[in-house]
């Protein structure tokens, strides 16, 4: 079994193009997902059952089903309905890219909501009481006390979720998108050299993972200035 180095080098340019798409999926979904997660969190924490229960069900469904199925439901399933085809969202839903972003955002939104909820619950109860004693309103306590502390607590878990999101982008290749994995699969289909190509792709993901971890590590360090070591 030979290890064809020239093949790897020759394929690199195409794989780099794939990185562009991978990163677009990552950043877009992470951003939308985060906004969604905050909304879900507030719903979940609410005392009104018609807000907290739907939020709970949403997270339950999206965390309990495979990402692949979620993609298939959106990509294959939604175009089935005339009402979708005629709706405003159709230009987005028609494209695999749009479907992928939506699927990723909905999915990461559910996970991050749970992470944030864990963070909020992790804030020392005494701090809430101090806030109350100082006559701060509920929203003031949430914005100035709970949120900043919860963010710091959840950073490690959140960075893990971003990495999971990165890995999930690889599923874009199942709906014809040319992300890193998509490009790799195409090249392998032509060249029958799975080891060289897929391992190169893996290395690309590992580098991206390392970059994300390092970035978060720096951010965590900064936010933990005031924490007992």
């Amino acid at each position: 079994m030979t290890f064809d180095l020239y093949l790897i080098i020759g394929s690199l340019p195409k794989m780099f193009e794939g990185i562009g798409l991978t990163l677009q999926l990552l950043f877009l979904s992470a951003f939308i997902g985060l906004i969604l997660a905050v909304i879900l969190l507030l719903m979940r924490l609410s005392l009104r059952w018609y807000l907290s229960i739907p939020a709970f069900l949403y997270t339950y469904v999206f965390r309990g089903t495979p990402m692949l199925i979620q993609i298939f439901v959106i990509y294959y399933g939604l175009p089935q309905f005339k009402s979708i085809q005629q709706s405003v969202l159709w230009p987005i839903l028609r494209e695999p890219f749009g479907c992928m972003v939506i699927a990723l955002s909905l999915n990461t939104g559910a996970y991050v909501a749970e992470i944030l909820r864990g963070g909020v619950l992790g804030v020392d109860k005494g701090l809430h009481e101090a806030g109350k004693a100082l006559a701060l309103t509920t929203s003031q306590r949430f914005i100035y006390i709970t949120a900043p502390i919860a963010v710091r607590i959840t950073l490690p878990a959140y960075s893990n979720d971003v990495i999971s999101l990165l890995k999930a982008t690889a599923l874009a290749s199942t709906v014809t998108l040319m992300d890193v994995t998509g490009v790799a699969r195409t090249i392998v289909a032509k060249t029958f050299a799975p080891y060289e190509i897929f391992i190169s792709a893996a290395i690309i993901y590992l580098v991206l993972t390392w970059l994300i971890q390092t970035g978060f590590g720096l951010f965590e360090k900064r936010m933990s200035r005031y924490v007992k070591q």
Binding site: D124, G126, L127, E129, A130, I145, P148, I149
Partner: peptide
Amino acid sequence: FQQFNLFPH
């Protein structure tokens, strides 16, 4: 409070 409860951040 007994535990001070100063806002750490």
